[in-house]
Design a protein around this nucleic acid. Structure first.
Lengths: 185, 185
DNA sequence: CCAGGTTATGTCAGCGACTGACATAAGTCA
DNA sequence: TGACTTATGTCAGTCGCTGACATAACCTGG
């Protein structure tokens, strides 16, 4: 992962070959692919702990709380993590913005995992089956959109913006969707 | 595209090689890749017209209408299209459900395009800049989640379910998000 | 301490998606 | 008709990724 981050930062995603990365990490290419299923996964290898943080945050919410409040509170742990791992998260954001294959990977694996966590938590709080009732998944979809907006803005500011604030204001917009009319700014 | 659909249906996505497809279509592999940037794009080559249908539907809504109503009305053209192209849409749904690379492609290109159309339309109706105000993108994210749910259910039913009905009920859940509490079933 | 099994790694050869370079055929238009 | 553009084929190559097999490192029970 370290070798990957180094070379990706140096030469861009396409400029760094999996052979180069393996060599820099002092392993064979075969060994590299035994630990990471794809080249993209080298960039997101540390996201499992974030997923577990998220799950813990969701599980810690009180029983009777409104669903959006729970989700919102749990999402704030993301801000904390992003501040603790600035460089890596910025690299991920930059590469995802520049390379469709990277952003596709991020969405299909990392973000999809978060989404599933939110769906499961929302479904449980609402006491419904997420395969039948569409609301848990819609909540998760809206939430992930908010996360993406905040992250994009944060990445665009090179990490200078207040990620916590960006996330909060994006998430707060979700609850207002029912009332939106023209010029309801 | 036709050769691709045939072989994908016969042997699955991985079982059909781009060489096979080119041969069946009576062109060289090189020519195939001049018309389709990736193997996955063979499966989604006809989605541009759907995007334009969607855009037209969004543009046709009256000025003062609530945003969710506009989006909802425009999305109904999807149901029409899915009913007109049952076989192809079912094949796409089945392959996307089975192959992560296919579903990643669909999300990163097809669905991302739809999302951008929705964002643009919502931003215009609200009179805001979508790079600053998060609401257009959140509306789009929630809407696309609803579409995915409906499509997944429709695919799972092998096209037997009423897609129009599935879409309508999923979309109707969006407006209710502000009020969700435990057991608010 | 050692024999037998498990696990991590390396090597090699190969598949398949995709691309650049170059040649050729087909259509287009002055 | 001849120059010019455009679609196609061929060929060789890169790169992500995988299966097969061998070897070395590491247990673990006797």
């Amino acid at each position: 992962m370290e070798a990957g981050a180094t070379l990706f930062a140096e030469r861009g995603f396409d400029g760094a070959t999996t052979n180069d990365i393996a060599e820099l990490a002092d392993v064979s290419q075969r060994t590299l692919f035994r630990h990471f299923p794809t080249k993209e996964s080298l960039l997101y290898g540390d996201m499992d702990e974030l997923r577990l943080e998220l799950r813990a945050g969701l599980a810690a919410r009180p029983e009777g709380e409104p669903v959006l409040t729970s989700v919102r509170a749990a999402m704030l742990s993301l801000a904390d993590n992003f501040n603790r791992n600035r460089d890596r998260r910025l690299l991920q954001g930059r590469l995802a913005a520049a390379h469709p294959s990277v952003s596709a990977y991020s969405r299909a694996t990392v973000q999809a995992q978060w989404e599933r966590e939110i769906i499961a938590a929302a479904a449980e709080q609402l006491g419904v089956d997420p395969m039948v009732d569409p609301r848990p998944e819609i909540i998760a979809g809206a939430t992930m959109s908010a996360i993406r907006i905040a992250t994009r803005q944060w990445t665009a500011s090179s990490g200078a913006a207040d990620y916590l604030h960006l996330i909060v204001s994006a998430l707060d917009a979700i609850g207002t969707l029912g009332d939106l009319r023209v010029s309801a700014a």
